[in-house]
Amino acid sequence: MTTEAYSRGPACSYDDETYRRLADDAAQIVARYPEPRSALLPMLHLVQAEESYVSRDGIAFCAERLGLTPAQVSAVATFYTQYKRHPNGRYTVGVCTNTLCAVMGGDTIFDELSEHLDVGHDQTTEDGAITLERVECNAACDFAPVVMVNWEFFDNQNPETAKRLADSLRLGEDVTPTRGASTVATFQEVSRVLAGFPDGRADEGVGASGATLAGLRLARENDWRAPEEAAPSDVDAAPGEGDVPPQTGGAQSSAESKESDK
């Protein structure tokens, strides 16, 4: 990069080394898009990977690199819940409390985990290890109730397994998700992946399994197949070239149709 590419305004106080490194990464992100401002979402993950949240320096950096105002960047950063506006823990523990998970025990898991960690929603333990969140849906209803750690799945949880999971994270022990990568990366490491810099772990661990594949297994065992698409009849056929499309609209259309038949 040229020296001009690293020029910056007074609003961003990253040290020179950090700014240069982020500017190099930002240039790679921007190059993926026809319009620079389209790079804002991954760039917010990039600056979040730096400090574990989108700081004022991060806002200023994104604004400067993309030709936006800080207000425009802040409007996006405050809209999406994956962007944090205060320091996040090394691990975000998200307990799904949406309908099915709640019915299956998600609310109880959250309440007991909150008491166990002595934090509430979007609060971080004193040791900086865990930020606890209520999550509206983890898109894993077939394994309810579900807990996620930095967006890795821990299926079929209960209050005791969730508390043991949290204790292991606080002790710095590796934990193995039910599906996905073989271990859980830190919040900052995952943020960098979300910025578009792969960590090479996409194919680790188990993918779809168990309840998710039950329907497929039954279909294969019973040779169930989707019905063949019926050939369109003359009545159902779409109007061809030169055809007059059928009229709609009730009595008026009927009257017009009768008049044309005369």
Rank of each mutant, 00 (worst) to 15 (best):
G205K: 07
V184P: 00
F153L: 14
R225G: 00
L165Q: 12
V193H: 00
Q157A: 13
E160M: 03
R164D: 15
S168D: 15
E229T: 15
G205F: 09
T161A: 10
W224T: 07
V190E: 04
P177M: 11
T176C: 03
R179P: 05
P227L: 06
F187R: 14
P227M: 01
E160N: 13
W224S: 00
N222P: 09
E152Q: 13
N150E: 04
L165D: 07
S182I: 02
G196W: 12
L171Y: 04
V149L: 03
R192E: 02
T176Y: 02
F153M: 12
R217E: 14
V175P: 05
S182L: 12
A195M: 09
T178Q: 00
V149Q: 03
G210W: 04
E152D: 08
F154I: 02
L194K: 11
L213I: 14
A181Q: 14
G215W: 12
A195F: 02
A181P: 10
P177C: 04
V206Q: 07
P198E: 00
S191T: 04
T186N: 02
A144Q: 10
E160W: 11
R225K: 06
A226H: 02
N158S: 11
T183H: 05
Q157G: 08
L165H: 05
V190H: 05
E221D: 14
D223K: 12
W151L: 08
T161K: 10
S191Q: 08
T212S: 05
A185P: 01
A162E: 04
K163H: 06
K163Q: 15
D203N: 13
N222L: 12
E221P: 03
D223M: 05
L194S: 00
T183D: 02
R170P: 13
R164A: 14
N156F: 14
L218H: 11
Q157C: 12
L216N: 04
R170Y: 04
E152I: 06
E229F: 11
L171M: 11
V190D: 00
G207S: 09
A181K: 15
E221H: 09
E152C: 07
P177Y: 03
G215I: 07
A162S: 14
N158A: 06
V149M: 02
G215V: 10
Q188T: 11
V175G: 02
A185N: 05
E229R: 06
E204P: 08
P177A: 06
W224Y: 12
P227V: 01
G172E: 12
E204V: 15
A219T: 07
D155N: 10
A219N: 13
E189Q: 14
D223H: 14
P145L: 07
S209T: 15
W224N: 01
L194V: 01
L218R: 15
V175Q: 02
W151Y: 09
S191H: 01
R164C: 11
G172L: 06
D167P: 15
R217Q: 11
T183Y: 01
G172H: 02
R201H: 09
T176N: 07
V190I: 09
S209N: 04
D203Q: 08
T212Y: 09
T212E: 07
S168T: 07
T212A: 03
A162L: 02
F154P: 03
D199Y: 07
F143C: 11
S209K: 01
P159N: 10
F153H: 11
G196V: 02
E189V: 08
M148Q: 15
D203G: 08
M148E: 10
G207P: 05
A211L: 10
F153G: 03
L165P: 14
A195H: 03
D155Q: 12
L165A: 10
T176S: 08
V184T: 10
G200Y: 04
